[in-house]
């Protein structure tokens, strides 16, 4: 609290607000029981993917010929082996790395693009706003899956392409959000004050406007990660995403395209499907809790 007493050029009043706001947000978040449970599940998953090489009993690419292919769960291979005698549990643990990596990095790209475009649109208004918002509308109305499919088909499937494509397609909702907030915030008196003492536009945007958006952006990014993980899974399932032998939860399901695997070897496809489901569900529910906690005015 001592910094407020000091005659700073810009009194850090917002600092105090954020802190008590943080406390209040934490209390609100804790009330959302499901969100707390989801966060715990995500924490476990996070530890699992970070320490994957130490936790997994086998290397995910290893072909364990002596164990045999398509073997049901056993003491040695807890979740059985796949079509080329790889250990499914190890692939499952490592596969989470890819899914989460794709989800988080893709959303980081979307966040940066969306914040820049939405920020400029909302701050400058006028022609800039009209042009940028028309572009945003186009991106909002695109059927994402179709465009991603077409782009991957043309650029070729790889983890890098997947991240770039998902990232470049997902910024529109974020831009809308940032623009809306900037539009109302730029009329505030403290922005006027900053102008008067000669602060540059960029400084006003980053120092004075953006910190107000930490809450809503966190919420938007959380839902975005869930969406990106689902997209990655879908593309990898179709064979257009992460390529074997690198495991991802999506491409582990690809093996179950034949009826015989689907019918007789549920250990091949149920675990990865379950992992995607539980991860995305947890992220979505945590996002819901975060929204209640950080963005209480939002009604949705």
């Amino acid at each position: 609290m001592s910094e407020i007493v000091e005659p700073a050029v810009e009194p850090e009043v917002s600092d105090v607000d954020v802190r008590t706001g943080g406390h209040r947000a934490w209390r609100r978040f804790r009330r959302h029981k499901l969100a707390v449970v989801s966060s715990c599940i995500l924490a476990v998953l996070f530890v699992m993917v970070v320490f994957a090489p130490w936790i997994a009993p086998f290397h995910p690419h290893d072909i364990n010929i002596e164990s045999g292919i398509f073997k049901p769960p056993s003491a040695q291979h807890w979740l059985g082996t796949d079509s080329v005698a790889r250990d499914i549990l190890s692939r499952l643990i490592h596969g989470g790395r890819i899914s989460i990596l794709v989800g988080v990095t893709a959303i980081s790209i979307s966040l940066v693009i969306g914040t820049v475009i939405g920020g400029m649109s909302g701050y400058y208004g006028g022609v800039v706003d009209s042009v940028l918002m028309r572009i945003t509308d186009v991106f909002l109305s695109l059927p994402t899956l179709i465009i991603v499919l077409a782009s991957v088909a043309l650029l070729g499937p790889s983890i890098r392409n997947l991240i770039l494509i998902i990232g470049f397609l997902g910024w529109a909702t974020i831009a809308r959000l940032v623009r809306g907030q900037f539009l109302s915030l730029r009329e505030k008196e403290y922005v006027m004050a900053a102008h008067c003492i000669g602060a540059a536009d960029i400084r006003i945007m980053i120092r004075h406007l953006l910190p107000n958006l930490v809450g809503p952006l966190t919420v938007a990014a959380t839902f975005g990660v869930a969406e990106a993980i689902l997209l990655e899974a879908a593309l990898s399932y179709l064979g257009l995403g992460v390529q074997v032998p690198t495991p991802s939860w999506g491409n582990m399901l690809e093996g179950a395209k034949t009826v015989s695997v689907l019918k007789n070897m549920p250990w091949i496809w149920i675990p990865p499907g379950f992992m995607i489901a539980i991860t995305v569900l947890s992220i979505n529910i945590m996002g819901d809790g975060l929204r209640d906690a950080l963005d209480p005015r939002s009604t949705h």
Binding site: L253, A256, L262, K263, A277
Partner: peptide, 17 residues
């Protein structure tokens, strides 16, 4: 939440199964 979180192809596979 489950309906929008569980991948549609996984629901489809479970349904077929």
């Amino acid at each position: 939440f489950s309906g929008v979180s569980v991948p549609v192809f996984f629901i489809a596979m479970l349904a077929i199964f």
